[in-house]
Design a protein around this nucleic acid. Structure first.
Lengths: 343, 343
DNA sequence: CTGTTAGCGCGTTCAT
DNA sequence: ATGAACGCGCTAACAG
């Protein structure tokens, strides 16, 4: 095999608008008009150009186009640094799949901008610079400041998950975490549980806070104590530890709402290790309805987190924004409880 | 609020090379040379330009640059249509995280090209067109034809996972699936099991085939029957069904290698539902070492699939390719068995 | 309706 | 060592 390096064979040059025009016997301007569906062009010329495009397999050069136009035909999916660890698996993959799916028919490309420890400038530089028409930001953390860049740039953007910072003037779509927490607690109450605890996510995330508040509200409304609370960070091990602490404090616990399925599975193992039967002695409700909920024993009763709908709604909103339409400041998706065997 | 639409405020124009040159009191050509580290420029002019760049916060315009240069400073992560469903969660997220991580210090952007049912042209168009410097393809399926495009384009590319089509002239990195299968079978044999079955993945994937072959080889070498085999498709439900079939055929089964953790968890549930104790009566070994392996009961003995290493190796190889260096046609990463309680 | 012209921001000869 | 001039592919005035 010959030495490596730049190819010497000048990869056959792609057809340009000039080529199309020449072949169709018109000027570049006319060809451009056809490509951009400008009505001011004769039928004869139009079909000639269209044929030429077909025969040459012409595609407009995106770079040249966005050099002279404001559009870039690309959107960025931004995952701030702080989320890296949290969005381990299921949520993120589903999100990306749904996003690309929603964009399948458009020429828009998806650019992935994941934050790195100590490197948010790379993302910011990209967001400025005008290489992208809009952004979908996946963020729930307190210390995310991407929104400031978006704000300064006036770049159309949509958050998936309520920004913790509050109303930052950027629309978002989220699941009704608070209602979900209430749903879980009410289910536990309705099955006769009276000493109901919760394992929350980290409280610097809006979702954690909301789920906890929903749980709290339901208990208070039922006249039950709402102080049986321990905090995790959405990882499995943190769920186990929180469970140990809670069980230590409240041996008579008979109901439990865990803010994520992953932590819930760990918590159930911990309960079983401590000799508690689930659901007979302690009923457990999770949150997310990930695959883990179905695969664990007993199968987990849990609150649905509709990731697919979140993603497609975000795309829909962003596309509206790009089209110049208004969108609601916030879209909150409903949720429901799926009853399995754990509660 | 006023009617929506294009902003009227002409978003402050970004500084151009022309601006830099003017401020430094030189010509655009000299400024360009400084930016591109061309040695042929005087020290005086150099520092002047550097200062101007600093003060103006100048960044080269990628579009303009790649209009006139072959590079695009972007790589594409390609997920062919067929993989969409299979690479549900853990693998994919880890892959993307590792890829962006490896690219953190370079100006290279990551473009996500996921296949859609009945739409591979969008990806192909992008790959041609020269908008990207290289590609990382995540594929194991038989009916992936992206490699033909890559081949025709001479676009530098690396596969993650051995292309099923065989040696297509594109380097790849993969885990040693065959050795993994052998490892699993040998472990079962060493613990005294004699009726050892397997649940495979879909056989139109290289990984499935290799894991099966490794299992087969170990059994034959030990003089054991290697025909206790059922096929799944890597989903949980397919694992359960395969387990039922196998148990029906071979009630005296005492050892089992399942080609993925997800299917293994389902298989274990199925075994338990049939009254078999794991591992006492049937020992089970999985593959992947995903989170599910640790969270199920009994915890799963499994073969490690080093996703992070796969991803970073792929990036490393691609960067070498982009730099004009040669890389090995294939890199096979070693694996190991993690013993937990299921076998 | 159509062609001519200018310019987007940049890299690169070719002179000097 | 530096600058003037050209062209990358395309869109958008401005004429006709």
């Amino acid at each position: 095999m010959p030495a490596a390096g730049k190819d010497t064979v000048p990869a056959k040059r792609l057809p340009t608008l000039e080529d199309v025009a020449a072949r169709a016997g018109v000027s570049r301007a006319t060809a451009s008009r056809v490509v951009n569906a400008d009505p001011r062009v004769g039928n004869l010329a139009r079909t000639a150009v269209q044929e030429a495009i077909e025969q040459l397999g012409y595609r407009p050069n995106r770079n040249a186009r966005s050099l002279v136009r404001p559009e870039a035909d690309s959107i960025a999916v931004v995952v701030p640094e702080a989320e890296q660890t949290v969005f381990s698996d299921p949520f993120f993959a589903a999100l990306l799949a749904a996003i690309t799916q929603s964009l399948a028919d458009s020429p828009v490309q998806v650019l992935l901008a994941m934050g790195q420890p100590g490197n948010s400038q790379k993302i910011e530089r990209y967001l400025r610079g005008g290489y992208t028409d809009g952004a979908i930001v996946v963020s729930h953390h307190k210390d995310d400041h991407i929104w400031q860049v978006l704000h300064a740039t006036k770049l159309p953007a949509v958050y998936v998950g309520r920004p913790y910072a509050g109303d930052v003037g950027i629309p978002y779509v989220d699941v009704d975490n608070r209602a979900g927490g209430t749903l879980a607690a009410e289910h536990l109450i309705s099955t006769g549980r009276r000493r109901i605890g919760t394992i929350t996510g980290p409280l610097d995330m809006a979702a954690s806070e909301d789920r906890m508040l929903g749980w709290q509200q339901a208990l208070q409304q039922a006249g039950l104590a709402a102080d049986l609370m321990e905090h995790g960070d959405f990882t499995a091990s943190s769920g186990a530890l929180a469970m140990q602490r809670l069980l230590n404090r409240v041996p008579e616990l008979d109901g439990l709402f865990v803010a994520s399925d992953l932590m819930a599975v760990s918590a159930i193992h911990e309960l079983q290790a401590a000799g508690r039967r689930v659901p007979e002695e302690v009923a457990v409700v999770g949150f997310d309805n990930t695959q883990a909920a179905q695969l664990t024993r007993p199968p987990l009763t849990t609150v649905v987190n509709p990731v697919g709908a979140l993603a497609s709604t975000a795309v829909e909103m962003l596309l509206k924004l790009l089209g110049g339409s208004q969108v609601e400041e916030r879209v909150i998706l409903g949720t429901e409880l799926i009853q399995r065997a754990s509660a």
